[in-house]
Design a protein around this nucleic acid. Structure first.
Length: 885
RNA sequence: GGGUCCGUAGCUCAGUUGGUUAGAGCGCUUCGUUGACAUCGAAGAGGUCAGAGGUUCGAAUCCCCUCGGACCCACCA
């Protein structure tokens, strides 16, 4: 940061300052709560949702960083011990896939390299590309503590994850079992429910004869061993069949089938009867468990048919479908085929391969086992997750998402946490040749050949522990998880964190998992408030995507308009939980605002005798002084309240309104007049120094108020004001303006209104701007005095000379704020007539309301009174207009 | 099938617990530039608050329905 008045360029050039300012902040150490000046007791903590280590900054990141930085900077100015923990995510599947693609260019697969070498390649790739995202986070002005930067696959996190696995296993919450899972044959991995996408596809729908009933299916290749018919218990058609055993001619010869009654059968659908395929359908699997039916695997992990398919064994299931149907046709089992069948095909969210539901051995977290001590009693993870939000320990902004959250938790099934991916946290389980199992981080010392479970953990298992694992000190050997957590100072100081800010799209993926894992691991909530932001869309409301080419690169925008402008464009007009639209004109608009702020400051700094910081409210000497101070104090109160309520957009809008419309458009113009001795009215006591103090006080306060939103430009101007290059004089560690008493200055409003009314009349009557006209103002004595006292304002701002001459018959008359103004210009009869009509209509409506007995009876006294005042004022105005026109 | 959100000026959006002659920014029209800023200033045009009904003295705001749009969850044997 340079300093000297010459360096205040005419238009603010963000590129000239931003990098230097960021470096200054970072080297000051103030991003680190331990190095903040002053006594700071209360902590304020945010864990940054970690962007992918190998990714690049997009608008989603930009808006998340802007929001979090605003909260952090505001709370830092409020004197809190502020910590924002940055980090990156190893993004297991995504990163592994990228490296697999890279090595595929050399014609290699991960299996060619082997686990160790492949993982080395991945780590190298991550290390090479991680600086990109780090520097992009800096570009946004993020005031996060880089000395505490975390990584989801760091040694610390790995240790936490493995220890947690072991503890949960000991508590009986983690178990291994056969379950039906979503399986991607291409990735050779299970997928979580939310990693499965649905695609509408057209295909064949087959109707087969199955003994006494007809069954319909889109997947004949799974039905070789369907041996159970389910009918609804109240279905009269099948009443006699329930419980019977039937021999039925089927795909590979006769089979023996049983009939079972269950409400799962829909009487309205098809024939009202169905057969089930437990190993390849979620619902059928549940039914099979409920009725204790055999579960037989027809399709294997490679997507091939097993021995149960007889002659089709070994063939790809999907490809064999038509051959199987051909055979069934020959056997006379096909009733009809609907070729226009539309259904939702489940596909892998990463590679679009159709998902096979199949049975496999996986690790699970039980959400229903009551094994966790919470609020004095043993509860299940599900119960705790519901309780913390219901009892308001955690509040979600906006709170309509509570409903969605509850619904999701209530329907939560056991969570499959094993993934057949190499890049990730390895499951700490070992097996030997005798099929014994040991749960431990390192290889068991007992005799035998021990092999570690090849799987890794679902990435949400580790990110679920993000808020506290990132605060732990480096692990030591031979200490328990509890001991480790206890000795870590940061955990004690900064956990639970205050706010978790993220997009509503990962409420389930992440927020819910953090609540589950942290209430378990820490016996406390991970955060107090969840702030959910919406998605950033293009001007038409479409998602931004590469294929549409409608994406906006935040870094381009920073280059063009500056970080402050980009931040504002992402914040203003965006409300929590709702999507917002971004387009370049919007960013340009905020660039204009930042420039306005710059020029306001430049004006104040260059017009005062000596720029300096003033934090004590100076004494007002003129009415305008009184008014602007009152407006400033009102603004401070409003902005503070908005920020406390997480209403960032409203806070910024309140500030913009004050800055541009009140300060720049009115007060600065008036200050020019009132500072000029040649225009000095008989106001007494008004001198330049008093004005200087007020201007500097306002600027001091304004820079603090804007700092969370536009950190760069405010820090740059602050430097000019403070004249200091010391770290402790940086704006980032200043203190937030206090709330001060204030009351509206209505006298000033009156003057403003009269000036506006005269301007309007001048414009409508097309009076040349250079033409200073005479005006006669008649008013009650008190108002008359006020007007005379401020006559220089009318002369300069409304370009009229106040006069005593009396020529009401010839002048153009305006009614405003109970005052009659006669302008020495020809009467505009038409204009006056219109004015009268408008007033008459308004009066009629008011009279109507006031003559309504039920309004008088029912409405509160204050409302009635207000209406009466309105009427009186309007009638007064009408009377004068009529008399003088 | 269950649920959520949205529909206010040409465009993007505010409108807090029902009480304004319904607001802002951009765009548009007219006028304006002798040192804070043309990335600017002054003034203006433009809305039956998606539609119908209800509650109320009073509805953009609360309730119900209809239409239109976005999204989430579940799922079609």
């Amino acid at each position: 940061m340079k300093k000297s008045k010459e360096s205040l360029e005419k238009a603010y050039e963000p590129k000239k300052h931003e990098d230097d300012i960021y470096k200054k902040w970072e080297s000051s150490g103030f991003f680190n709560p331990d190095k903040l000046p002053g006594k700071r007791k209360n902590p304020f903590t945010i864990s940054m949702p970690p962007p992918n280590a190998t990714g690049t900054l997009h608008l989603g990141h930009a808006s998340m960083l802007a929001i979090q930085d605003i909260l952090i900077r505001y709370n830092r100015l409020q004197g809190k011990k502020t910590l924002w923990v940055p980090g990156t995510d190893h993004a297991s599947i995504a990163t592994q896939n990228r490296v697999e693609k890279l090595i595929a260019e050399d014609g290699k697969t991960r299996h060619d390299l082997g686990r160790t070498q492949f993982l080395q390649e991945v780590e190298d790739f991550v290390e090479d590309s991680r600086d990109t995202i780090r520097n992009q986070i800096r570009k946004m002005g993020s005031s996060c503590d880089w000395t505490r930067e975390a990584y989801t696959l760091s040694p610390t996190l790995t240790k936490v994850v493995q220890e947690t696995f072991i503890t949960m296993h000991n508590d009986g919450i983690i178990y291994r079992g056969d379950r039906i899972v979503n399986w991607c044959p291409r990735c050779a991995s299970t997928l979580a429910n939310d990693e499965v996408k649905h695609k509408t596809t057209k295909g064949n729908y087959y109707y087969f004869k199955y003994g006494p009933i007809t069954i319909g299916t889109a997947r004949p290749e799974t039905k070789f061993l369907d041996k159970t018919i389910i009918v609804h218990p109240e279905d009269k058609r099948y009443k006699d069949l329930v419980g019977k055993t039937l021999t039925i001619p089927w795909m590979n010869g006769d089979i023996v089938a049983h009939v079972i009654a269950d409400t799962a059968a829909d009487m309205e659908e098809g024939t009202g009867a169905m057969t089930i395929t437990p190993a390849h359908s979620f619902i059928d699997f549940e039914l099979a468990q409920k009725h204790n039916l055999p579960i037989v695997q027809i399709i294997n992990e490679k997507g091939e048919l097993t021995g149960h398919a007889g002659e089709f064994a070994g063939q790809n299931a999907n490809q064999a479908r038509e051959k199987i149907v051909e055979k069934m046709k020959r056997e006379g089992l096909v009733e009809k085929i609907n070729t226009e069948y539309e259904h939702n095909l489940s596909v892998c969210y990463l590679c679009d391969t159709p998902v096979e539901p199949l049975i496999s051995k996986q690790w699970f977290i039980s959400v229903d086992t009551k094994a966790v001590e919470w609020k004095g009693k043993k509860q299940s993870l599900k119960e705790i997750a519901l309780d913390v939000v219901k009892s308001n320990d955690i509040s979600i902004v906006p709170n309509r998402f509570n409903k969605t959250y509850f619904h999701w938790i209530e329907n939560l099934h056991d969570w499959c946490i094993s993934r057949q991916i190499w890049f990730g946290h390895r499951i700490p389980v070992w097996y030997n040749e005798k099929e014994e199992t040991e749960i431990s981080i390192s290889k068991p010392t007992k005799e035998g050949t021990w092999k570690q479970d090849p799987d890794t953990l679902d990435t949400w298992f580790s990110s679920g522990q993000w808020t506290f694992s990132t605060l732990l000190e480096s692990p030591k050997d031979n200490e328990t998880l509890t001991q480790w957590k206890k000795r870590s100072k940061d955990v004690k100081t900064f956990h639970p964190t205050n706010v978790l800010e993220t997009g509503y799209d990962i409420l389930f993926f992440w927020i819910a998992r953090m609540i589950l894992m942290t209430t378990y691991g820490m016996k406390e909530i991970p955060f107090e408030t969840v702030y959910l932001h919406g998605m950033v869309r293009d001007k038409q409301g479409r998602k931004m995507s590469k294929s549409l080419g409608n994406g906006i690169d935040p870094l381009d925008m920073i280059k063009k308009y500056g970080t402050d402008a980009l931040r504002l464009s992402l914040i203003v007009g965006a409300t929590p939980g709702n999507d917002s639209r971004l387009y370049e004109e919007k960013i340009a608009g905020y660039r204009n605002f930042v420039n306005k702020l710059w020029n306001i400051s430049r004006f104040i700094i260059t017009s005062v005798q000596k720029p300096k910081i003033i934090t004590k409210t100076p004494k007002p000497t003129t009415l305008s002084d009184e008014w602007i101070l009152s407006q400033l104090h009102f603004t401070i109160e409003k902005v503070t309240n908005h920020l406390e309520a997480f209403e960032l957009s409203a806070a910024a809008e309140t500030l913009r309104e004050f800055t541009w419309n009140e300060l720049a458009d009115w007060y600065l113009e008036i200050a020019k007049i009132e500072k000029d001795p040649s225009h000095s009215p008989p106001v007494g006591g008004s001198d330049g120094a008093g004005k200087d103090d007020i201007l500097l006080y306002i600027l001091t306060s304004l820079l603090k108020l804007w700092h969370p939103f536009t950190p760069f430009v405010t820090e740059r101007i602050w430097n000019e004001l403070s004249g200091s290059t010391k770290n402790e004089d940086l704006l980032i560690v200043e203190s937030w303006p206090e709330n001060k008493k204030h009351k509206p200055v209505t006298d000033f409003k009156t003057i403003q209104n009269i000036i506006i009314a005269i301007r309007t009349a001048r414009a409508e009557l097309q009076v040349e701007a250079s033409n200073i006209i005479d005006a006669v103002i008649t008013a009650k004595p008190a108002q008359q005095k006020l007007i005379t006292k401020n006559q220089n304002l009318f002369e300069k701002l409304a370009r009229v000379t106040l006069s005593n001459k009396d020529y009401p018959q010839k002048g153009h008359v305006i009614q405003e704020s109970g005052v009659t103004i006669t302008l020495h210009v020809p009467v505009n009869k038409e204009k006056t007539k219109k004015e009268i009509e408008k007033l008459e209509k308004y009066i009629k409506a008011l009279k109507n309301k006031l003559s309504n007995a039920s309004f008088i009876d029912n409405a509160p006294q204050s409302i009635v009174q207000k209406e009466q005042e309105k009427l009186a004022e309007a009638e007064n105005a009408l009377q004068k207009l009529k008399a003088l026109s």
